[in-house]
């Protein structure tokens, strides 16, 4: 008897649970948010957009060359091809869409149209409008390579530093 009652209760509960989304769609509809986990914290390798694929390929080419797997000639060919692919992917996505979680400041490309004379660029604030700028007018980073400054991010280096304390780049000897 107990079993029969338990079975009937189980069946009733299950039927209610299953039919509720159909009987009360509006109530259920609000619960959409908990269908499936959000994608925060997902594996970056799960991003299979053309941009991410091309960027990863560039990275991998670099690494394969560093480990000696790619010859210099192959490296050049692949580098050229995948840089164009990555650039094409970036252009296709338009400015402003960085990595999903990058939150980086992207320079407004239209404000500084490309010119024949390469403008020096600050890593954080983009190309400077001044044609002969030596430092970024917004953060003070050194723009061109110079002794005492990091060659990549332009931060001032500490005395006899072997690595940049800001970005970790090795200081050329």
């Amino acid at each position: 008897m107990f079993e029969l009652v338990a079975g009937i209760l189980l069946a009733t509960g299950a039927v209610y649970f299953v039919l509720r989304p159909i009987l009360y769609p509006e109530v259920e509809g609000r619960g959409t948010g908990n269908e499936g986990r959000g994608d925060e914290g997902e594996d970056p390798e799960d991003d299979l957009s053309p941009r991410a694929v091309a960027l990863r390929a560039l990275k991998e080419i670099e690494f394969d060359r560093a480990t000696g797997k790619l010859s210099d000639a192959d490296y050049d060919v692949l580098k050229t091809r995948y840089t164009s692919e990555a650039l094409a992917a970036l252009r296709a996505e338009g400015p402003g869409s960085g990595m999903r979680d990058a939150g980086s400041v992207v320079p407004d490309a239209t404000a500084h149209p490309a010119s024949r004379i390469p403008h020096l660029a600050c890593p954080a604030h983009g190309p400077r409008p001044e044609p002969d700028a030596a430092f970024c007018s917004e953060c003070g980073c050194r723009l061109a390579a110079a002794p005492g400054y990091c060659a990549r991010c332009g931060s001032a280096l500490e005395h006899e530093a072997r690595y940049c304390h800001a970005c970790g780049t090795r200081v050329a000897a």
Binding site: L55, L58, T80, S84, G98, P107, H112, A114, G126, P127
Partner: peptide, 27 residues
């Protein structure tokens, strides 16, 4: 699409800069 000459990539410096930044963000 890809003749071996390296300089054939036509891109504005800011585009290259953006590319570099994106690359930096990859683990």
């Amino acid at each position: 699409a890809a003749p071996p000459a390296a300089s054939n990539v036509t891109a504005a410096p800011e585009e290259l800069e953006r590319l570099r930044r994106e690359l930096d963000q990859l683990p």
